[in-house]
Amino acid sequence: MTTFFSLYQTIGWHLTVLVLFAFLLAGTVKGVIGMGLPTIAMGLLGVAMLPTQAAALLLIPSTVTNFWQLAAGGHLRTVCKRLWPLLAMIAIGTGIGSCMLGMGSAHGMGRALGAALFVYALCGLFLPTLKVPPCAETWLGPLCGLITGLITSATGVFVIPAVPYIQGLGLDRNQLVQALGMSFTVSSLTLGVGLFCNGALGEAEMGASLLAVIPALLGMLIGQWLRQRISAPVFKRLFFIGLALLGLHLLNGG
């Protein structure tokens, strides 16, 4: 039991409150729009703690909520068959990045994280949904996977460019939800392996990450309740605006 709380005892009560709030908010966003948990959590936690520490805390909540998302829809085999080149290159790219790039200094990674969040927000706000022709999937999928893996290893955020690519495949709603869940699951697991190999994931971080599952799941339940009562497009726009502001804050040095 001591292991579960040791990291929170080290960082103090004020950062512990931030962790709980970050995962509650991130889970709520994911419950409403089906994504956003790692992005929101990394962005908020990256303001106040080492990015490697934030990424370690993210590991179990992200994996659990992604498996939840992955289990729904009934199209798992179809999704895997279509996306395996993307998924394989995400794993390879994350592995290469973890060995060659890794998560560097807090200052440098904070700026990289801010840039990733800001670019992703601008894409969500202003770019139309991409249309990926079937003939381009054979080369574009692996390329997007490799780039996503490298960005994941450097920032802890695994949405660029995998999410725009998956959204451009023309999948139906259930397939899209499962495809995003599959992509996020592979990214979070390979990021966890990279953190472990670099010595950034020990018993204290795993215990703290396991406890963070509670606010993340509670947030998802709240988000699913909100989804029936608010406009998802309006919520998504507010999400991207908030993400852009957070990215600018991190770019300016936090």
Rank of each mutant, 00 (worst) to 15 (best):
L250D: 03
G93V: 12
I92P: 02
G110D: 01
A106I: 03
N252T: 09
G242W: 08
V119C: 07
C197G: 08
F23W: 00
G73L: 03
P233C: 01
L45P: 06
A41L: 10
A244F: 13
T152H: 10
T10V: 08
L15M: 14
Q175M: 07
F5Y: 02
A208G: 02
A121T: 00
Q167R: 05
G36R: 01
Q178M: 02
V157Y: 09
R173W: 03
Q178H: 01
A216F: 00
L59T: 15
V64C: 05
A71I: 08
M100T: 10
Q175N: 05
L140Q: 11
L18S: 15
A244S: 09
M1N: 03
G114F: 12
I151K: 14
S183W: 07
G207S: 00
L221A: 12
L127R: 12
A55W: 11
L15H: 11
I230E: 03
P134C: 10
G31Y: 02
L37G: 08
L238Y: 08
L211R: 01
L59S: 11
M206L: 15
Q53V: 00
I230D: 00
F118L: 14
G73V: 02
L117E: 05
Q69P: 08
M100F: 11
F5D: 00
T52V: 10
G145F: 05
V79M: 04
L37W: 08
G12C: 09
A91S: 10
T39P: 05
L125M: 10
R227M: 03
A71R: 14
T129L: 09
M89S: 14
T78W: 02
A54I: 12
F235H: 07
F235R: 04
Q178E: 08
M35P: 05
V163C: 04
G114A: 01
P233K: 04
V163M: 13
G12F: 02
Y8M: 02
C197F: 15
A106G: 00
G114E: 07
W139P: 07
A244P: 01
N66W: 11
T138M: 09
K30M: 15
T78D: 06
P164I: 14
F196M: 13
P161K: 12
L251W: 15
L210T: 14
L57V: 03
M89P: 06
I166H: 10
L44T: 08
M42W: 14
V193C: 13
G93Q: 01
L211T: 09
M103H: 05
I214L: 11
Q175D: 07
M103G: 07
T10A: 15
C135P: 00
L140P: 11
I230K: 04
R111L: 05
K236Q: 10
Q9L: 12
A204D: 02
Q178C: 06
I147W: 10
A116I: 06
L70I: 03
I151G: 00
L57E: 09
A115T: 09
L243I: 13
L226M: 06
L146W: 06
K81C: 15
